[in-house]
Amino acid sequence: MSAWRRADVDRWLGRALPGRCVFCLAALPGEFPWCEACFAGLPWNVPACPGCGEPQPGGEAGRRCGHCLRRPPAFDRARVPLRYEAEVAGLVQRFKFDASPRAGRLLLDLLSTGLPEDVRAWPEALVPVPLHPRRARERGFDQALWLARRLGRHLGCPLLRAERSRDTPTQRGLDRGKRRTNLRAAFHVPEGLPGRVALVDDVVTTGATLDALSVACRSAGSREVEAWAVARTPLHDR
């Protein structure tokens, strides 16, 4: 289905199915756009490494993964409530590649709901992961900026912009180490960042992009950096 047809279906569903679960179309008694059963059945990223958000086996809850123990990321902790699987993967693809506002709104609601209240109140600023200007022009849509702007308004938190100073080659097919090398010195952040910032992106694969941006944020004055994203790609899917 083409992008404009998907957007057309999104608009039609928004008008024609008020009060229905966005996943199963069951009647909704509450304020959220999903029913309890579908919400519980989403691929929640639990347990996950508290350092990088890597999905963990059941017995590893609360422990940092081997990658974080060997080479801790430049950010202090990751907040990634969902895994990039099933319904969540479909929503991300429609949002990222088709610019579906309905999918984006759902992902934003899921991210906000998946963050505890004290975490939502923690940052002094949000910094979206930037696209290079050429990529932004080609795509016509910057998904991280879209999410961060709306999340910032919801949280009452200011938005600060970083720049992608180097148009890096695609990260697809690269392992963790090569991704880090690919992104070295790729970001510029203006001086004078507040002490606590949260980086915002849609999906985390290896965390290399967030790691590189965290280095730039610390150089610009931040003492603590968290990485926030909607979903994390499980290791076996990379």
Score class of each variant (00 low, 15 high):
2 S>F: 12
3 A>V: 14
8 D>F: 14
10 D>Y: 10
11 R>C: 07
15 R>N: 02
15 R>I: 11
15 R>V: 14
15 R>F: 13
18 P>Q: 08
20 R>N: 05
21 C>Y: 11
22 V>M: 10
22 V>W: 11
23 F>P: 00
26 A>W: 07
28 L>M: 03
30 G>E: 14
31 E>G: 10
31 E>D: 14
31 E>L: 14
32 F>Q: 10
33 P>F: 09
34 W>A: 11
37 A>H: 09
40 A>P: 00
44 W>V: 01
46 V>I: 05
47 P>C: 06
47 P>V: 10
47 P>F: 08
48 A>N: 03
49 C>T: 14
51 G>W: 08
52 C>A: 10
54 E>Y: 03
54 E>M: 15
55 P>C: 11
58 G>W: 14
58 G>D: 12
60 E>P: 00
61 A>G: 06
61 A>M: 03
63 R>I: 04
63 R>H: 09
66 G>S: 13
71 R>K: 13
72 P>R: 15
74 A>N: 03
75 F>E: 04
76 D>L: 13
78 A>Q: 02
79 R>P: 00
80 V>G: 04
84 Y>L: 14
85 E>R: 15
87 E>L: 12
87 E>V: 11
87 E>S: 13
89 A>I: 04
92 V>F: 10
94 R>G: 13
94 R>A: 15
95 F>W: 15
96 K>N: 02
98 D>P: 04
100 S>I: 13
101 P>Y: 07
102 R>V: 10
103 A>N: 09
104 G>S: 11
104 G>Y: 11
105 R>V: 05
105 R>L: 12
108 L>Q: 14
110 L>C: 09
114 G>E: 05
116 P>R: 03
118 D>V: 10
118 D>Y: 06
119 V>L: 11
120 R>H: 07
121 A>D: 08
122 W>L: 11
123 P>S: 09
123 P>V: 12
124 E>Q: 15
126 L>F: 12
127 V>E: 00
132 H>G: 02
133 P>V: 00
134 R>E: 05
135 R>G: 02
135 R>Y: 05
136 A>T: 00
137 R>M: 06
143 Q>I: 10
145 L>H: 11
145 L>A: 14
149 R>W: 08
150 R>N: 07
157 C>Q: 06
157 C>P: 05
161 R>C: 06
162 A>N: 07
163 E>Q: 14
163 E>R: 15
164 R>G: 03
166 R>N: 03
169 P>R: 01
170 T>H: 07
172 R>W: 07
173 G>R: 13
173 G>T: 10
179 R>I: 13
180 R>M: 13
180 R>E: 12
180 R>T: 05
181 T>W: 06
183 L>S: 04
187 F>H: 09
189 V>Q: 02
190 P>E: 03
192 G>M: 12
193 L>M: 15
194 P>Q: 00
198 A>G: 15
198 A>P: 08
200 V>M: 11
201 D>M: 12
203 V>C: 06
204 V>N: 01
204 V>S: 04
207 G>F: 00
208 A>R: 14
209 T>Q: 09
210 L>P: 05
211 D>S: 10
214 S>R: 00
222 S>A: 15
226 E>V: 14
228 W>I: 06
230 V>T: 04
233 T>G: 03
233 T>H: 04
234 P>G: 05
238 R>N: 06
